[in-house]
Design a protein around this nucleic acid. Structure first.
Lengths: 293, 293
DNA sequence: TCACTCCGATAAGCGCAGCTTATGGTAATA
DNA sequence: TATTACCATAAGCTGCGCTTATCGGAGTGA
């Protein structure tokens, strides 16, 4: 069965004569007759008959017409969806680790979303290992991570770019006298630490700087929970400077620096290397890096 | 766009390699590659890519797959519907005038419906003029009428058969002394008549027998209403004997005969002459006449 | 009733879409 | 590095489906 045959049948059903249907379809009359007969033979039921020089659907033809209408509407919907894709609409799936997804990406995505209101963006929060896997399997189109993702073992790997820079701050309660100065690594090691779970990138950096796995007094699942813990005087945290900027500005928390943790580090964007991309995907990638100030 | 291409895409999307998809479809690998590429070119979007030796759908391909699933499900539904038609299922539309549709057809249709529980029968009540038009336009497949329908002016007309016989009775109230005997036409002409509306076949017969248009004391829209009027003593009615059999038997009404109205007359069945028929339609036509006792 | 007209069916011919086999190139695997 | 597995390309062929030309038949008007 062919879509063309169904279309022919639909037009025939709405026409008075085969000749008229042929004119509508821009084909010759025998072509129409043959198509309809082929359809009848394939389906094994009579579909049309000519009575009083007018096309008349049989009961089977009547039933078929309903189905054909439904199928062809489905094809039209398909065409429209692809047209949208072609024209720069569609869907982009971003995966990001916690800090950029909360404190960095919203600012970068906002102008893009305003310019492309018909584009649907999905932002999921994952740890770096999951990001690699999702990107590899095609479940996300773009990954954003603070550190370097393991590059895949086979040739090519990912295309990598820089979204911006990020710096770790030592986060203190509001009145802490040790604020606004450089800490040594020894000083940090001696302080009671409130940290995110062990999969987070901050933990990796800390472990490298301390020379051993940090032993936090408390381990919490979100940046916000960590901040509240510090504010409550439970200890000292190490968080992205971006994530505490508002609270420091408002005087609810204080910050210090620690050069031994390494200076500003890049936030990386990843995407498949040789992937064939939709216009939206390309536009979003460009937007992410163009907005860099 | 071709249904075959959509099917190929669907299989490819569910396969790991083009070669595997080709095996499933029983075609060669280049055939699959070409079909997919043709689809991509026609739709103007990339659909699949091969990453890590595995087929990977792009965002557009993912979206397309959903639409393709829907369309192909629609085609399957279509096939099933046609299979039903082919196998003797389906729908038959009958048009009949009031008396046969109430007092004759139910008995004839009952055994057929019992034997074909998946067949949908539509029975609509129409006057003879409407029946002709509906049959002619294909809106009904079979017509049942008491008298002869005007045969269409062009060659062929309808196929006509006899469903059974019917006789007009004079209907009287239960205690009427004039029951159970032959009336003369003059006697009938002198009686106060309660009749159906002027389009009914009974009126045509009466008019012919009386030599003029009958002048009823009351004109009612249904057989049941006429019976109640007679029972209430409003006058005398002329109705099909079949339609009052129950009431006469129960003693609620009485009947008389009138040879001048003509003896038993046939109830005719009509259908289009050269119409191509489904198995159901043929079976119903046969059943209508086979059940004749 | 007969000629006229309109429409669908049939036949012959042809162009092209789409399949096949054969082969080359490339990425993952040992 | 050799091997394997897979996709892309090329060339050739088959057959589907279109076209034009023509016939036959049914409805229409004088």
């Amino acid at each position: 069965m062919q879509l063309g045959q169904l279309k022919v049948f639909q037009v025939v059903a709405q026409s008075r004569t085969f000749t008229a249907a042929a004119a509508v379809l821009g084909r010759s009359q025998p072509a129409i007759s043959m198509q309809v007969r082929a359809l009848e033979q394939e389906l094994g039921v009579p579909l049309v008959e000519v009575v009083h020089r007018r096309i008349q659907l049989t009961a089977a033809g009547d039933e078929l017409l309903r189905h054909v209408d439904r199928v062809l509407r489905g094809v039209e919907a398909l065409d429209r969806a692809m047209e949208t894709m072609r024209g720069g609409g569609g869907r982009v799936r971003i995966g990001a680790s916690a800090t950029p997804s909360s404190y960095l990406l919203p600012y970068r995505l906002a102008p893009f979303v305003r310019r492309h209101p018909d584009v649907q963006i999905t932002l999921s929060v994952e740890n770096p290992a999951a990001l690699r896997e999702l990107l590899e399997s095609g479940a996300i189109d773009v990954a954003v991570a603070m550190g370097a993702l393991d590059t895949p073992p086979w040739q090519g790997g990912f295309e990598i770019d820089t979204l911006g820079t990020e710096e770790l701050s030592i986060v203190l309660s509001a009145g802490d006298p040790r604020r606004n100065r450089d800490w040594t690594i020894a000083e940090l090691a001696a302080a009671p630490l409130v940290l995110r779970e062990s999969e987070s990138h901050t933990r990796v950096v800390l472990q490298r700087a301390l020379g051993h796995e940090p032993r936090p007094v408390m381990e919490l699942a979100s940046n916000e929970a960590v901040k509240r813990a510090v504010a409550a005087g439970l200890g000292v945290a190490v968080l992205s400077r971006l994530s505490v900027a508002w609270e420091v500005e408002a005087g609810r928390l204080a910050a210090a620096t620690c050069p031994d943790l390494g200076g500003p580090r890049r936030v990386y964007t990843y995407r498949g290397l040789s992937r064939r991309r939709l216009p939206v995907e390309e536009a979003l990638w460009q937007a992410l890096h163009d907005e860099l100030t």
